[in-house]
Design a protein around this nucleic acid. Sequence first.
DNA 1: CGATGTGAACCTATTCACAGCG
DNA 2: CGCTGTGAATAGGTTCACATCG
Lengths: 256, 256
Amino acid sequence: MNDQPPTVRGGRDRAVPDATVARLPVYLRALHRMADEGHATASSEELAAVAGVNSAKLRKDLSHLGSYGTRGVGYDVAMLVDQISTTLGLTRCWSVALVGIGNLGHALAGYAGFASRGFRIAALLDRDPDRVGQLVNGIPVSHIDDLPAIAAEHGISIGVIATPAAAAQEVCDRLVAAGVTSILNFAPHVLSVPAGVDVRKVDLSIELQILSFHEHRKASIGTPSLTRLPGGRGDRRPGQDAQRRTTGTDEKAANA
Amino acid sequence: MNDQPPTVRGGRDRAVPDATVARLPVYLRALHRMADEGHATASSEELAAVAGVNSAKLRKDLSHLGSYGTRGVGYDVAMLVDQISTTLGLTRCWSVALVGIGNLGHALAGYAGFASRGFRIAALLDRDPDRVGQLVNGIPVSHIDDLPAIAAEHGISIGVIATPAAAAQEVCDRLVAAGVTSILNFAPHVLSVPAGVDVRKVDLSIELQILSFHEHRKASIGTPSLTRLPGGRGDRRPGQDAQRRTTGTDEKAANA
DNA sequence: CGATGTGAACCTATTCACAGCG
DNA sequence: CGCTGTGAATAGGTTCACATCG
């Protein structure tokens, strides 16, 4: 316990801001890559470069998990991997139900990234009787009506929706009724869920439209002789790496 | 070479914040839905409900595009659709190149959401000679080496990367060399691009890990008798719709 | 000495609350 | 009178710059 004033969140002051949480998986991937390349230790500068962020942000992010660096040296790669994995809850394996075995569902079912870190597709579900019973990537497709039993049996708490938009809300409701409290939604539809359920969305069409905006911007401004940097989107601060290549994407719009 | 203290962006003060841009496609979808349902006009409250945001945010977002509402009435649906479409640059059709025709590439090539609003897959590309020449969803697969010619021919400015992580950076470099200035990256790899090129990423594995964090949180806190709301993620403000269902996802982590 | 960890400054985004218009 | 549009207040995130420590 602690007294009061600012930011009383979960247990103590654990907090970990959402923006930081969204970057931890990126750091984790960067760390694995550095480990593969033989680094036992990594400075915030090196790690930040691989992760595509600046070093100050990385240090501040890591500081939310505790103090796992050594001044004058950097971070122990293996230890940081452990710490981030623990924070993200990746020390256990999560069972996932994937609903909607169409075009996209097939691709997702075959996606290697699933198994790679602590996620297991425990069930594939569809409403189409013709698809039920099929084997997709070695996993049999079950009927959506069997969701409650399957969810209970496997202790499924994460659901992935890959159905058409029209079916998404109903599927979502069924997932929630079956005890799922985290949903990843690929359907182009805004889901409505009770409090306590987290939803994240992945939406190709939205991403394209955002890119369209920026393309449109670039095109319509023409190449303004030299109002700003010759190519930048305009908001680069004159700070450090204003030139050369921008690495990665800065995070922002996805979900929460 | 310009003075001016605060926030001088593109032309004048056009700005349109990134967070707003990321939501415009959502509003657009909501508007289309309301139009389909016969609404000629919509209040900020109604629209916001369909789009899964609160009305104040929606009004402020729309105010960045100008004043298109009527006080006491609401917004004219058709007019708003036009205005948002124009802002997003959707009044023209963008040609897109999709690179990497594997599992995911197939699914993306078949995705209806592409054609739906101003995007046309002008080319499918792969490095595997066995795939070249195949027809996928009616479009022939070309070899990646032909990218420069194809990009020039179709005026392609948007590229989608659906290759394995190992190939992503090279493909990215080739796209940029061919004149592509906006990239949507599905590969689990942080891309490095020159200034002036926009990158957005879609990453299943990162999304799952973020959900894992929240699941972990919920599980480890148990059900705290009544420290907070019985189910919420903890950061619900005591404001308006704190109970009932949270609609949609709040935006945050995706890209920029 | 070199790199972490962090207070402070800054900037962006969200929410409130209400003036003002149709 | 109802709803938009917006200034002001608040919250959240990023960057700077440096004290601090191994």
